[in-house]
């Protein structure tokens, strides 16, 4: 009986250990198969937007980086401040690590021009290029949100603040594949993101 118990707990330990060692993250989004029969994973396409310092930022600036993206607007009365509180945790933790970036897309680019974003970033005490706050063509931003990051982002006069958008944080790997989507308003969800970030940094 004692032996049986020992063997059982040993087995459990082995299983648990091998699981925790091999944490792998999924590839999210539609997959396609190319001509040579390989699976091609969903990828964030090229983009170009201005950041809070009026610098043009494109996918080239995040080449080889793991990054977290979200959608917000500076006058948002509801979930954005919560998201920014959580995003600050990510910012502070990876402040010294150049492989990690944060991109926040404004979904109210008419109001959130570069000088509004600059003021916002200064008050939040965050800096580019670690944390880029981006603005630009509205249609391009909405398309990127809906088609590429797979989150809702659009105008809605019925919504407080005039826009509907999800509070999602999207985790993207070094090859621009979406590897995780988390609720950026919830502390425990962001804890998961931080764990998964470590997995991606080791890939």
């Amino acid at each position: 009986m004692l032996l049986k118990n020992t063997v059982l707990s040993l087995l459990f330990a082995v299983v648990a250990f091998s699981c925790s060692q091999e944490k792998k993250l999924p590839f999210l989004g539609p997959k396609t198969v190319n001509a040579t029969g390989d699976t091609v994973y969903h990828q964030i396409p090229d983009f170009q937007f201005l950041n809070q310092d009026s610098v043009l930022v494109s996918q080239k600036d995040i080449e080889g980086k793991v990054y977290v993206a979200d959608f917000f607007f500076t006058t948002c009365p509801t979930i954005c401040p919560k998201m920014k509180t959580q995003m600050l945790r990510i910012y502070e933790r990876y402040k010294e690590r150049d492989e990690v970036r944060i991109i926040s897309h404004s979904i109210d680019p008419d109001f959130d021009n570069t000088s509004v974003l600059h003021d916002y970033a200064t008050r939040l005490q965050v800096k580019a290029p670690k944390w880029n706050l981006l603005t630009g063509d509205k249609a391009a931003i909405y398309k990127l949100g809906q088609k590429s990051y797979m989150v809702s982002a659009q105008e809605d006069p019925n919504e407080a603040g005039g826009f509907v958008h999800s509070g999602a944080f999207i985790l993207v790997d070094k090859n621009r594949h979406v590897r995780g989507i988390y609720d950026g308003t919830v502390e425990t969800e962001v804890n998961h993101l931080l764990e998964d970030m470590e997995v991606l940094l080791k890939e």
């Binding site: 401040p81 920014k84 600050l88 200064t122 008050r123 939040l124 005490q125």
Partner: peptide, 8 residues
């Protein structure tokens, strides 16, 4: 009630 940096 402590606010958020200089934003709030």
């Amino acid at each position: 009630g402590a606010g958020l940096r200089d934003l709030y």
